[in-house]
């Protein structure tokens, strides 16, 4: 009775089981690595091919260039237009900057309204918002185009970011509303007792707690805008206003013989900002709500 602890001997795990477990791990990781590589291969190939000569690109399926060259990058950067690729990056930046910033601001405002206030027709309005999520994009393209044409906004960046400044991206609003619903209201009530009005509560209390979600929103918006091809294609006609996504296509259009290595090089460059931003923001991405956690 007294020495119940000693009665249970520490049975050593038989070596056979250890070996089996190890083998299992090896198999599992090999499988994962192989599948991962297969999925990543196009990207790896893209990076490798961007250093190949034009003739080699279609020569082999391998990704290691035989005679690595920077020619694709140098020539691709210069482009066949009067502008360098730097100009196009700058243009993309000019679209992305207002778009991500205003998306964050407007979506936070609207989500705060839906998540925290009672007002007439709230349910109907929220249902409408969700309904626009399900609406195919193409449906609104033409009416939107006509609208912006009549406003004289064609060939400017306004049609590309102004809708986002009015919380036009229902998905982000929805995402933030869900996030807010999970945050207890106590802190906001404490702020109101402390004398904050609704806007001060939003700015000083809600937004700091929303930061992880807002970063996700901005990240998504950044990547989607970076990749958006159709929008700029429809609204922009002057080459000097083209963003990267259009400019990549441009080099295919205008050069007599396609210089694939230039296109691939510029594609690699076009990928970089998104990658860099993603890795920088990853921490917040993962941190999630735990950062604003409440005990109890």
């Amino acid at each position: 009775m007294a020495d119940i602890t000693t009665a249970i001997p520490a049975t050593p795990v038989p070596p056979r089981e250890i070996r089996a477990a190890r083998l299992q791990a090896v198999v599992r990781y090999t499988l994962l690595t192989v599948v991962g590589l297969i999925m990543l291969y196009p990207l790896i190939w893209l990076i490798g091919a961007s250093f190949k000569t034009n003739s080699e690109i279609f020569g082999s399926i391998g990704f290691l260039p035989r005679e690595p060259t920077l020619e694709g990058y140098v020539k691709g950067w210069q482009t066949s237009t009067p502008y360098t690729f730097g100009r196009f990056f700058w243009n993309t930046f000019l679209i992305i900057l207002p778009k991500t910033i205003f998306t964050a601001i407007s979506c936070a405002l609207v989500a705060y309204g839906f998540a925290r206030f009672e007002f007439p027709f709230k349910r109907v309005l929220f249902a409408t918002l969700i309904a626009t999520l399900l609406l195919p994009n193409v449906v609104t393209r033409i009416p939107q185009y006509i609208l912006f044409r009549d406003m004289g906004w064609l060939d400017s960046y306004l049609p590309l970011w102004v809708p986002s400044a009015f919380a036009g991206d229902a998905f982000f609003v929805f995402m933030l509303v869900q996030f807010l619903r999970a945050i207890p209201r106590d802190m906001e009530e404490a702020a109101r007792v402390d004398g904050a009005n609704s806007l001060q509560t939003l700015v000083y209390i809600v937004v700091p707690m929303l930061v992880p979600a807002l970063i996700s929103v901005m990240l998504f918006q950044f990547m989607w805008t970076m990749n958006d091809f159709l929008g700029p294609l429809i609204y922009l006609s002057s080459v000097d206003k083209f963003p990267v996504s259009l400019a990549l296509k441009l080099s295919i259009d205008t050069t007599e013989a396609f210089d694939w290595n230039r296109i691939l090089s510029m594609s690699v460059l076009a990928l970089l900002p998104a990658l860099v931003v993603f890795f920088m923001a990853q921490k917040y991405f993962i941190e999630g709500i735990s950062a604003g956690g409440v005990k109890g």
């Binding site: 802190m187 404490a190 700091p208």
Partner: peptide, 13 residues
């Protein structure tokens, strides 16, 4: 008035 909440409701940030 001033209020003390069950969950403390301190501003986490």
């Amino acid at each position: 008035i001033a209020m003390v909440f069950q969950n403390y409701a301190l501003y986490p940030h």
